[in-house]
Design a protein around this nucleic acid. Structure first.
Lengths: 243, 243
DNA sequence: TTACATAGTGTAACTTGTACACTAACTTAC
DNA sequence: GTAAGTTAGTGTACAAGTTACACTATGTAA
């Protein structure tokens, strides 16, 4: 299959693990490095080329499927990066020449963000090391991937003001404390527990289950679920979220 | 200058003219048409190829400058379109072959929206007919440009919920009725005049000028201006807009 | 049985949203 | 210069939402 080599997708995969918000990073292989310096950053976001007969959404889903084994992950395009000095890897330049194509100087990449609960993921990707890193502790990434990550976080925050994305970071059954923590992490803010719960109570699409948390060394919390159906019906009235 | 032919930008240029929200369309030339049928739509959004040494933001600004003669227009990337069946024009395919490049089947285009007050614009572009069309009366456009327009309107609405984009559609000095009309057009809604003004009054960055409207056949309205400086200082407190 | 940890709950003061109708100021036509 | 036409500009009462704040309840583990 031929690659349209100059178009790629990069996925900012965010996961919440009951403590913090994490981003999925993959370790670079040696032959990915642009020069031989050992000081180049070792970690990148997940991404891949886009095939010629493939839409970019398909390509991003393919990356996520290879990574997690799941295909129903929340995924959304947020920005395209095309600065002329974006780097094409040397091995790709060689390969492009070998098939008679112009080894262009830049790769245009379409940034996607994906949201999921970390426990779902198997963490294997093309034989490389993969790790969750707390978003607040991400160091230098390769290429312009720090910039892509920052843009993703801004896009997610903006979208979360008026769409119920927070639930995508939680398992199907969750506690209100977990929900609150998700929003606190995303917006880097602290909310008042009672006021937060008052607001959730007004959301008819957050439904209390007949079930409690298990295996915790303290009072177990009530579990809730999110109903997208009810949300779709009532969203006109209840649009504002937590920030 | 060589073109990186498979990347283009398309600009959804929106203008407000004291009555309605309009979008700028350009007429196609005959040799743009994919086949000879006279039934193909005659109008498109403005767009162009992206040069190899050019970022996409630069390319979009170039399109806007060619069109309007202005270079300080509010412009923002909103979505990238890359469906495999997006069409490359026949003349471009011929041209790409002539310079030894693979005539790929699709053009990846990055969609931008631009906001301005219509009176600013001179309306000339590459020798073609250009016209403002009320957004509500746009008919069939060429390629997937109706889809691009719809996506732009959704992106603008979402952004306008928490950023002061409405002012970009007005001249520097505007009346509160004009401001209200902009938001009514964008959100396709009617607001109560007194409540709207109450809300504006709370926005310290909308400043009453010592000046009134002129040349209107009725009571002239107070003029106001928007101060981005004050907005930047106070935005944490006053984030919500009109919808 | 006690210590520990987190869950879960209510109220009062204040701010914002909503619904609603008349007078003021200017121009034009007669 | 008077009347008709047009848009500007204003206030109030009620409902809803926001904010700040501290204690009791229920489970586990030692």
């Amino acid at each position: 299959m031929k690659l349209s080599s100059y178009i790629s997708v990069d996925c900012v995969v965010l996961g919440y693990d009951s403590e913090q918000l994490n981003v999925l990073l993959v370790e670079r292989k040696l032959d990915d490095k642009v020069n031989d310096s050992p000081f180049e950053p070792d970690w990148t976001l997940t991404g891949n080329h886009v095939y010629l007969d493939e839409d970019i959404e398909e390509a991003a889903n393919r990356v996520l499927y290879d990574l997690t084994g799941f295909s129903e992950i929340y995924l959304e395009q947020f920005k395209t990066f095309a600065a002329p000095d974006r780097l094409l890897k040397p091995k790709d330049q060689v390969w492009l020449k070998s098939i008679g194509m112009d080894p262009l100087k830049r790769v245009v990449t379409i940034g996607f963000f994906a949201l999921l609960a970390t426990q779902k993921v198997s963490l294997k990707w093309m034989g490389r090391n993969v790790k969750w890193t707390p978003v607040k502790e991400v160091g230098d990434l390769a290429f312009d991937h720090n910039q892509i990550l920052d843009s993703a976080l801004i896009a997610i925050r903006n979208k979360m003001r008026h769409e119920p994305l927070g639930f995508e970071l939680l398992p199907e059954k969750f506690t209100l404390t977990q929900l609150q923590q998700v929003y606190e992490q995303i917006f880097d803010a602290k909310f008042d527990k009672r006021n937060f719960r008052k607001k959730v109570n007004r959301m008819q699409y957050v439904i209390a289950l007949d079930e409690k948390q298990k295996g915790v060394p303290h009072k177990p919390a009530q579990l809730y679920k999110f109903s997208r159906e009810i949300y779709e019906q009532t969203k006109r009235e209840l649009l504002e979220f937590f920030v």
